[in-house]
Design a protein around this nucleic acid. Structure first.
Length: 271
DNA sequence: GGCCCATGTTCAT
DNA sequence: TGAACCTGGGCCT
């Protein structure tokens, strides 16, 4: 389930599982069959992620460009894969194990130029070591658009999705309805730095955990809890539940077709 | 079995 | 702003 941390983790997994050795490639579902046939027996050079995009490098053959979209998933493991099913867009197998890609928005074999074009339309990624938040700040500091919308715009920051958006704004007490240009430089620097920390932790754990130790249910003397998406969060999908810090009901509304969550007391009205 | 929902994006209007 | 695309899980009957 795909925000940027998922793709960076998949890049590392594929490097480790398949890198440097020939893979078998197949497309039981059929939509990637012609390209899979070209790739069958090729050596994976390396895998890379930028935001929510994953690139698997196969030398002169080019790159498999994968975008999971909202529904895409990768199942993987050591040893022999389970019997194939007809929703597997791409199955890779090798001595290190197997991976099955289902439901992606994009899975295509592309060349260096097309890959460069993807990078060119993405903003800095908190998970790419060499990236910094300058270009994002330039755009945010001039924009009348809400910070909630700006954080979801992949041209501005690559890899942030609906969970990290809601959570990082909560952690910094920022009203999601504030226009980008109302943020101070210090507020943006803190958001960017926190995204780097939170998303790195997401790569390590394979889930999104954003609750500080002092606010865990245990530390607050409340019954233990696990959010149904797997991690522990302050506001994401916690509409009408009490804020973990102040007890106010978490609010939700639709913004540009996505559900936004925030605490009206810790962050402001969200109007 | 059907319906709704979801950590996303693009294209048409 | 809305529809389309891709899949699976949860909940209902």
């Amino acid at each position: 389930m795909p925000e940027g941390h998922t793709l960076h983790r998949l890049a590392a997994d594929h490097d480790q599982r398949f890198g440097g050795r020939p893979v078998r490639a197949a497309s039981p579902q059929g939509k990637f069959a012609a390209s899979a046939a070209l790739l069958d027996g090729a050596v994976l050079d390396g895998a890379e992620a930028h935001g929510k995009h994953l690139f698997l490098g196969f030398g002169p053959l080019g790159w498999v460009h994968i975008h999971l979209g909202l529904f895409g998933k990768v199942a993987q493991g050591p040893g022999t894969p389970p019997p194939p099913t007809d929703t597997i867009r791409l199955r890779l197998t090798g001595p290190g194990g197997w991976s099955d890609l289902r439901g992606p928005t994009a899975c295509a074999l592309i060349d260096d130029e097309a890959k460069a074009a993807v990078h060119a339309r993405l903003g800095p990624d908190p998970l790419r070591e060499a990236d910094d938040g300058e270009a994002a700040w330039t755009r945010i500091s001039r924009s009348r658009t809400t910070i909630a919308a700006l954080l979801m715009d992949q041209k501005i920051v690559a890899g942030v999705g609906n969970v990290y958006r809601a959570e990082v704004l909560f952690r910094h007490g920022i009203d999601p309805a504030r226009p980008g240009r109302s943020l101070s430089r210090a507020e943006w620097d803190a958001l960017w730095a926190d995204l780097r920390v939170l998303m790195r932790e997401g790569v390590r754990l394979g889930r999104i955990d954003t609750v500080r130790p002092e606010h865990t249910p245990e530390a607050m003397g409340r019954p233990p809890r696990r959010d149904d998406h797997g991690g522990e969060v302050y506001v994401y999908r916690r509409a009408h539940l009490p804020c973990l810090i102040c007890g106010t009901e978490i609010r939700t509304r639709e913004l540009a077709g996505r559900n936004l969550f925030w605490c009206p007391r810790c962050q402001g009205s969200g109007a």
